[in-house]
Amino acid sequence: MSRGQKWTNRPDIRSTSKVGEATPTRRQALSALAAAAVVTLLGCARFPSGNGLDRMVSDLDAALAKAPDDAAPGLIAISHQIQSQARALITSQEGFSTEFDRLSEDPNVSDDTLLRLVATYENERRTKRDNLLDLQDQLHASVSKDLWPDVQEILARKARLISMKSSLRQG
């Protein structure tokens, strides 16, 4: 199945969602959802440490667990998949960087070896990225259409925050 088919054939589970008024609890859940979406969008953004991701995922799970609707189990399942994929992306990126640097400074290592290392990493990265994009679609399908603008607003705010925190200028 092609990537496009996978995305377009995703079942729409919005009909089972009972997302309603933006109560504080709901707002909290939406914020957490948006944070997850940001991770999905940013994909490989480098986080200053694993703790930031751990904290975000923990907050996400806590918020989703409180969600008073039938969609909560589905949302939590998505969040766990996002957590797994995001962590795998970060881990593989760190591993690749270390290995790339190590081999680069060894004059006995051929350019072909480096190119193969890059190619292997790139294939894995694209797969994980596409998985995250697929999860974003699932996330979108899990919240009501009316509330998506709210999610988008929070998403944009979170994106700026995460982008700032993941900036190399932070050291």
Binding site: L41, C44, Q93, S97, D101, R125, S163
Partner: peptide
Amino acid sequence: MPVLATITVASLLFGGSYEKA
């Protein structure tokens, strides 16, 4: 981590590149 590798790898990854540019 060597600077250029950090810049290159991070900037080559999708997302998070607005600040890194």
